[in-house]
Nucleic acid binder design. Structure first.
Ligand SMILES: NC(=O)c1ccc[n+]([C@@H]2O[C@H](COP(=O)([O-])OP(=O)(O)OC[C@H]3O[C@@H](n4cnc5c(N)ncnc54)[C@H](O)[C@@H]3O)[C@@H](O)[C@H]2O)c1
Ligand SMILES: NC(=O)c1ccc[n+]([C@@H]2O[C@H](COP(=O)([O-])OP(=O)(O)OC[C@H]3O[C@@H](n4cnc5c(N)ncnc54)[C@H](O)[C@@H]3O)[C@@H](O)[C@H]2O)c1
Lengths: 206, 206
DNA sequence: TTAAAATTGTGAAAAGTTACACATACTCGA
DNA sequence: TCGAGTATGTGTAACTTTTCACAATTTTAA
């Protein structure tokens, strides 16, 4: 039980959490089962049970899982018992949508600072936040001990931005720029590229 | 060689293609090697060779891969020797950013129609496209034989929209709504949820 | 011409992941 | 209290994916 937990297991926990929250919002039922959860997510119940068993025994035979309790446990495991402050770099059309997005806060994240290099954007406000010059990035991250950043710059700037973020102390980056980023061990990077997702699907279309 | 190719292999091909295009744009070198490509992507060279070997022998011993030729082959495999017309559902802040995004076209996709249910949005233009009522969706998809759609509606509408898209003939959907969607076999669904990505990373942060 | 270097494609081994199936334990109603 | 039903947690088997390592081929340079 104390061995290294596979990344692939960690990756499913947020999905479970998301669906449990939906169950909480929909039903007034207090419990669910690995079978119900799996049914709703297209995942086998055995897999859900095995995944959760890496972290403890959260269920009860005959009954299933208490939804609220499991949500709490998953939040603890994923370190979501706090709101993570987030830095956004790139205040273009995507960055602006992200800055206005109200779906981060209730799930544990909040974009609090926005940076850009375009002098015509610096000083303008987006959703109550002032777009700041990149020159202020390092001190902001240090002062507020920020660990999480989102990159929404063009691909051409993304590696340079990444290097600077990491140098400044950022430990997790979600990048929307369509390229692989290099980072030292200990820094976590996720990607969101709609085109690779679409291309993956068109393989299967005649 | 003629057996079923694993999904996980298909999923890496767009990444290879993306990096090959970057190589094309950067260098004037005409060839690359599995080692160079792997180095740039953080993937082992053996994996790249094995992946490609599912589809044929594209390389040359001692030399590596001709970049242009490999790009062409990957485009053929992924059915990117055409531009796929795409329907966008949901003209909110994210949908608007997507509608303006100029990164789709050069990689094989083009958003051509935008649908929404909000009467105050219908009739307005985004990037030269008129926002249309959902009631026109079915006929548009049929008339233009559209196979690909992007969902950028709130989660609460997404399953209903999905059902309608599929009923109308859509075969591949990229959804930004933060929930699992049900679809019959033969319909492909991909997801983009920044929060699950961030949550996956915070697991590793103290 | 020859030897060293580079590089592929691939069979086989290793590692990782998922599915199976069942002992165990709780619930509910008679 | 009992028996039927439900559902967990898990050891093991089956399957999938990655890595290894090398024969074969081409390039390069002496
Ligand atoms: N627009 C979309 O819908 C969409 C969708 C998916 C992915 N993306 C990707 O997201 C990224 C942003 O897309 P966008 O459409 O918002 O682009 P955009 O051109 O509208 O905005 C990019 C912003 O980044 C800023 N920028 C450039 N260099 C910078 C630097 N070194 N430091 C800080 N800021 C810098 C620019 O000034 C600009 O404000 C791109 O990589 C794009 O490929 C966009
Ligand atoms: N804004 C972001 O940066 C962002 C980032 C990631 C994911 N998302 C997700 O993307 C989706 C859209 O986000 P948003 O911020 O653009 O929301 P939004 O509220 O700005 O826009 C949603 C749009 O969908 C339309 N809509 C509602 N029901 C519809 C229906 N049945 N058919 C067609 N259109 C319908 C609404 O009229 C509205 O125009 C949400 O699910 C959100 O969680 C948004």
């Amino acid at each position: 039980m104390a061995t290294e937990i596979p990344d692939i297991v960690i990756g499913r926990l947020p999905i479970y959490l998301r669906e449990l929250r939906r169950l909480q919002a929909e039903h007034d039922k207090l419990t669910t089962s690995s079978h119900e959860l799996g049914e709703r997510l297209g995942i086998s119940s055995a897999q859900i049970r095995k995944d959760l068993s890496h972290f403890g025994e959260f269920g009860k035979q005959g009954t299933g899982y208490h939804i609220g309790y499991l949500v709490d446990q998953l939040c603890q495991i994923l370190h979501l018992d706090q709101v993570w402050p987030v830095v956004l770099v790139g205040a273009g059309s995507l960055g602006t949508a992200l800055a206005y997005y109200d779906g981060f806060r209730p799930r544990g994240f909040e974009i609090r600072w926005i940076f850009d290099t375009d002098p015509s954007k610096i000083g303008h406000e987006i959703n109550g936040m002032c777009i700041q010059a990149i020159s202020e990035l390092e001190e902001t991250i240090a002062r507020h001990k920020i660990a999480v950043a989102i990159i929404a710059t063009p691909a051409s700037a993304a590696q340079e931005v990444t290097d600077f973020l990491i140098e400044s102390g950022i430990k997790a980056i979600l990048s929307y720029a369509p390229l692989h980023l290099s980072a030292p061990a200990g820094v976590h990077i996720s990607y969101s590229d709609p085109v690779t997702e679409l291309q993956r699907m068109t393989y299967y279309l005649g």
